[in-house]
Every structure is written in structure tokens, then in C-alpha cells.
Amino acid sequence: MNRQEAEIILQRTFKLNRFYDEQWTTIEKILKGERVLLIEKTGFGKSLCFQFPAILHKGTTVIFSPLIALMRDQVKKLNSLSISAKCVNSEQTPEENSQIINDAKAGKIKILYIAPERQENSEWIEATRQMNLSMVVVDEAHCISVWGHDFRPAFRRIINLVNLLPKGLPVLATTATATKKVEADIAEQMGSNLSIIRGNLMRDNFKLFVIKVNSEDEKLIWLGKNLLQLPGSGILYTGTRVDTEIYSKWFEFLKIPSSGYNAGLDAETRIAIENGLMKNQWKCVISTNALGMGIDKPDIRFIIHTQIPQSPIHYYQEIGRAGRDNQPS
């Protein structure tokens, strides 16, 4: 399949006009059964690099992702395009997860998102042996590396699965935040014959500002005066769950439409807040990094940090939620 033929399918199925050059380079390699590490900026469209090949393959593509909110968001979008996609995660009942796994074994699911920790589940381990796997994807692949900013041991176990896969079954690892050291570590673990595609990680549509204040009270006052003047909707990051409640109550007092979001909320409430953000119901969502990388809303216009993030890489990931439509943010 050449690029012109592929872009006809892209327009028909995904309602997009064309691939970026690096997207097509990645997809070409995947369609040839190669292993690829793709390092591209937030908002680049890395997910299309596995979603497009997935609809061409006969079997099921499994995507390991640590972000439940992102899984939900992408499954919803894929289903709206009439692509059979599901996710298995801890916020669903065991019965729901079992049904989804059975559907995948029966070949009813094209794209299956799953949390890396699921590999410790015996039902899942057995299911992988019975599934017609067409591709394995490791999203947020920096989590594989002990040198990464968010190392997770469960991601190491994905590598065990990858190394058992037959030759010629494509594997794609994606991240926006792999340093050269992390890149080398991932490459070593994923084995030989790995193609590495590294793009430009700069986001030219961003403007960064520092507002100097002398106290926590001054932060609240500045936000109260200026938040409604900012264009569009956005995310305000805080350091703790308690802080999300403090800012929520302050904005409620000022009648600024907003909602607090943190990992302590039940799944139903989190989903309602995510949906509200997507529909521009809130001027901002006040969140710990629980919202983090899990939202793909193209027109988020501002990100505010009330405290210094854990690292520069965390900061890059979190501001990367904004301006995914390439408009100024």
C-alpha cells in the first residue's frame, strides 16, 4: 500500500486529509512488521500511527496504556468512527472486563486498550495465548526505563511479552519524553532491529509566563481577577487533593464555572468531569496530575501550575495538554 492509497482510507475512516511525514514513515514500518520506537511531541498524533495500521490488520491490536482517562477518551472517539474498540481497566467490574476479553478472543474487537498491571492477571495471561494478536503497542514507553521520569515495574513485564512475540509481528512504542539515555534503555530492552524515529519536540504555538506572587493568598487573588480574562477553557494543576478543594471552593464563591478532579473521586464522577471539560462546561478543571496526560481535547487554551511540578519532564507533559489544534495557547 502506498501513501496515496492509505490517505484515501484515512479520509474515509478517520476524516483526516493526510499524514504527517513522520506518521507515514512510522506506519509504513509497522505495516512491514517492524519494531519502532516513536518519540514525538505532545499533540503530534502518535495514536494515529497505531490506530491506522490496526484497522488494516486482521487480528486485534493491544495497546498498553497507564492512563484510564486517555483509554476512555480514545475508545469513545474510535467507536464514533465505527471502529470496534474497548478498554480493560480497574474502574470496570470484573464481569465487564471478562466480557471484553472474551470478545477480543472471539475476534470482535479491533483495538483493545489495557493497563500494564493487568499482566499480573491470570485471565489476561491465558487470553493472550488465545487471541489473534496483530500488533502490540506500548504507550508512554518512557515508563519502561528506570531512567525515565515515571518508571513503572509493570512496564518491564510488557517487554517479557514483546520478546515472546513471533518475528514479523509489529511492535510500536511511543513517548513524548524520552531523553537519549531513556531512548537507549528502551532500545536495548526491545531488542535488535528496532527503528527509532525522533521528531522535533518543540511546540511553537506555546507562550510561557511566570506570575510572581508573595503568598498563597495572592495566587488566589490573581486567579480570581484574571481567570475569566483568559481565552477558552483550561486546566489548573495543583500539588495535592486538598488544594483542588481549596481552589474549587474559591472559584465557586466567585461564580467561576470549574470542577475539582483528583484520584480520590469515584470513576463515575471523574467521567462526568472529563465529559464536562470536553463540552466546555467549565472555565477550568482544577486537578492534581491525576488528569495528567489523560485528556485529548484539541482546544485547551491555557494550563496553569500553582506549584512547581515534579520535574521539567512532568511540566512538558502537562502543558502538552494545551493547543493540540496548533492554535496559540
Rank of each mutant, 00 (worst) to 15 (best):
E5M: 04
I8A: 11
L10K: 04
T13K: 15
L16W: 09
N17E: 14
D21E: 15
T26V: 10
I30N: 02
G33F: 09
E40N: 10
E40W: 06
K41S: 12
C49Q: 06
Q51F: 11
F52D: 05
P53S: 02
P53K: 05
K58T: 13
T61A: 10
I63A: 05
F64G: 07
S65L: 07
K77S: 13
L78H: 08
S80I: 01
L81T: 06
I83E: 10
I83Q: 08
A85S: 14
V88C: 10
S90C: 05
T93A: 04
E96A: 12
S98Y: 11
Q99P: 00
I100H: 01
I101W: 04
I101Q: 07
A104L: 02
G107Q: 00
L112D: 03
A115R: 07
A115G: 10
Q119I: 14
Q119E: 11
E120H: 15
W124H: 13
I125T: 08
E126H: 11
A127W: 10
M131D: 08
M131I: 15
N132C: 09
L133Q: 04
S134Q: 02
V136W: 01
I144V: 15
I144G: 05
F155P: 09
F155Q: 05
R156F: 06
R157C: 04
L161I: 14
L172T: 10
A173F: 04
A173Q: 11
T174L: 14
T174D: 07
I186Q: 02
E188N: 14
Q189T: 00
G191F: 06
S195R: 02
L201A: 04
R203D: 05
D204N: 15
N205K: 00
F206M: 12
K207M: 08
I211Q: 14
N214L: 11
L220H: 12
I221Y: 13
L223K: 08
N226C: 06
S233F: 10
S233P: 01
S233C: 11
L236F: 06
Y237L: 08
T238C: 15
T240E: 08
T240W: 11
T244M: 04
Y247C: 01
W250H: 15
E252Y: 13
F253L: 12
F253R: 14
L254E: 13
N262A: 08
L265N: 08
A267S: 15
I271P: 00
A272F: 06
A272Q: 14
E274W: 08
L291D: 01
D296K: 05
K297R: 12
K297D: 06
D299T: 05
D299F: 04
R301Q: 12
R301K: 13
Q307A: 15
I308L: 13
I308E: 13
Q310P: 00
S311R: 03
I313N: 03
H314R: 02
R321I: 02
A322Y: 00
D325H: 02
N326A: 09
S329V: 15
S329Q: 10
